[in-house]
């Protein structure tokens, strides 16, 4: 007996019609649709989790102007999430929208980078995480603008404008705080050291990445490394911060193997949807 529901049985087909695709079979691993779905959840989950982390600061930032700026960034990231996960849901074709994907999947189905689930720490840690991510995010989006998939190219063009501002902001703050007081310097250096091991994952491709790259849908992760290195080296130098020597990279987030932190984040993020599954909000 097959373990997966068969789309050809009349029952399943009827169900799919009646419930807008909910009865359709899951995408087959290794198929182009499944690859595309996975690639889109990697994008959307990453912006979702980072947006969530940044939003945790709301009302608690060191100064009002920063509170407002951070909220703008979180709003951009949540907006991008709606687009990436919305498209992922369409590609999947099983009736799940962006909210269903964000609020009804378990940790092992999340494909975000480990970097963005790191806890906020102090404000310097949050800014450093943001910079290390933004410096990758911008070249990623630039490459996605040239995707063979027009929907992806369109979303990337919109998000690219937002993220160009993000990286300008986070790079500038890293420079200022690195080259500020002794204390701000020390805090930024220790943030950099603590986060460094989580930056490499973004540039390590797997089979899904390779197939998406081959098809021109998404860039090969390895191809984004030199841009990132250039930005990071220039900013760290101006910030008088020392780039850690280690090239060890924690990985697994993109494949659904996460740190313990993600579970706690999802516990609060998904709580209402999980507790009241019949409700609409």
């Amino acid at each position: 007996m097959p373990s997966l529901p068969d789309v050809m049985t009349p029952d399943a087909a009827q169900l799919a019609q009646a419930a807008g695709g909910e009865g359709r079979a899951p995408l087959e691993t290794g198929s182009p649709e499944h690859d595309l779905f996975t690639g889109l959840t990697r994008l959307g989950d990453t912006t979702l989790i980072l947006g969530h982390r940044v939003s945790e600061w709301c009302g608690l930032a060191p100064v009002l102007e920063e509170d407002i700026a951070l909220a703008n960034m979180a709003l951009d990231l949540i907006g991008q999430t709606q687009l990436w996960l919305g498209l992922a849901g369409e590609v999947e074709g099983r009736g799940r929208d962006a909210d269903a994907l964000a609020f009804r999947r378990d940790g092992w189905e999340f494909h975000n980078l480990l970097l963005v689930e790191r806890p906020n720490g102090d404000f310097g840690r949050t800014l450093m995480r943001q910079f290390l991510f933004d410096a990758y995010h911008l070249p990623l989006l630039k490459a996605l603008e040239g995707s063979t998939n027009p929907r992806i190219a369109e979303i990337a063009a919109k998000a690219g404008k937002e993220v160009a501002y993000h990286v300008e902001r986070s790079a500038d703050l890293v420079i200022r705080l690195g080259d500020g007081t002794d204390e701000s310097h020390a805090r930024m250096q220790s943030s950099l050291d603590a986060l460094w091991g989580y930056t490499g994952e973004a540039f390590i491709g797997d089979a899904v990445d390779a197939r998406l790259g081959e098809a021109g849908v998404m860039p090969a992760p390895e191809s984004l490394r030199s841009d990132w290195d250039r930005t990071v080296n220039a900013v760290l130098a101006e910030a008088t911060l020392e780039r850690p020597a280690s090239d060890f990279a924690h990985k697994g987030g993109k494949q659904g193997r996460h740190s313990e932190h993600l579970g706690h984040l999802l516990t609060s993020m998904q709580w209402l949807q999980r507790s009241y599954p019949d409700a609409t909000w």
Partner: peptide, 20 residues
């Protein structure tokens, strides 16, 4: 009005605070 350490940051804060 707003507070900022220098002109560049004042400009960015203005963007974030007054053009939402």
């Amino acid at each position: 009005s707003l507070h900022a350490p220098d002109a560049e940051l004042a400009m960015r804060h203005a963007r974030d605070v007054y053009t939402r």
